[in-house]
Design a protein around this nucleic acid. Structure first.
Lengths: 165, 165
DNA sequence: CCCTGATATCTCGATGTCAAGATAATCGTC
DNA sequence: GACGATTATCTTGACATCGAGATATCAGGG
């Protein structure tokens, strides 16, 4: 089945036959798919009254395991936002009672963000919903294809994630 | 090489061994890679004094071919933003002299957005820069792998692009 | 100790995006 | 040929993000 990127690439080949636009076949699809996924996630989380950005922060803390706390800096590398954004996110989540700020006992510059009980429950519920939705999207592919796709994507993400992105 | 999603998945398997988090292997990588690509694109376009959103609109018009004009509605489906956003983008691009608004002769509700000569030049220059950068990112993969990856991604994007996303 | 550079977080103004609703024109049907 | 439903675009207000700079603390060398 044809997608929007097929049309986009065909248009470039007609308009700019002098250029090799093959890279777009992969990377434009990644960008567009991510955009579609954002929309879908927003809908899925609405059932739990959570925004995607809230989910990202809460689940990062949830994954950390007991006592469910990370520094703002650690949250930055996991969520790929800037420090100003993270300060703002923590403020808003704290106001809703989903996280709390604690002073870092070993570094007075630092802060620890800890998940509250309610924050943990909300994260768990939303994760279950998200996985259900994602399974439906991935039903297009066989298990072997999913593994193959994950592996190819890892090769592209690894340089960003390891060499300081 | 391990990436951040490997760590993320391992953490979930430790914290929530009851859940099957396999979908994240694909879809979290897509979202994170898109985020990295956004940053990289922003840097690449800075050389041409263009923002990513400006590039998206200008190149959609450029691809359309002579006379380089599309309706705002057509631009919406290509760029995946809302109508309010597109109105705003067109305003700003028009103010910079990169596009102009024309009344649609066949539908008085409608508008046509046309690329100016300068807009076309800027789009062409930025595209060349982008392709160069993307080729470097994709150098991680063999040509066969790139084709394989594009095909797998197409299977996921096609439902969104065809059934009205 | 004191300085210098690095690190951790926060502040703040500018900006881009979204969602919902307003306006206006077109289409299909009776 | 008038009516209601649909379509195309724009308006508006709320909000999240970014980037640059400010503040405070830490670590190591002299």
């Amino acid at each position: 089945m044809e997608d929007e990127v097929d049309r986009l690439v065909a248009a470039w080949r007609r308009e700019r036959p002098d250029l090799d636009v093959e890279p777009l076949e992969v990377l434009s699809r990644v960008s567009r798919l991510a955009r579609h996924l954002d929309r879908a996630r927003r809908l899925a989380f609405a059932e739990h009254s959570l925004e995607p950005w809230e989910f990202d922060v809460l689940t990062a803390l949830r994954r950390a395991g007991t006592p469910y706390q990370l520094s703002p800096g650690q949250l930055l590398t996991q969520t790929l936002v800037t420090s100003g954004t993270m300060t703002n996110r923590i403020d808003r989540l704290a106001k809703k009672g989903l996280v709390e700020r604690l002073p870092d006992p070993s570094d007075r510059r630092g802060v620890l963000v800890r998940l509250t009980g309610e924050g943990r429950d909300r994260a768990d519920q939303a994760l279950a919903g998200l996985l259900e939705q994602e399974r439906a999207i991935l039903a297009e592919l066989s298990p072997a294809q999913r593994t193959e796709l994950a592996g190819l994507l890892r090769q592209l993400t690894a340089p960003f994630d390891n060499i300081p992105g």
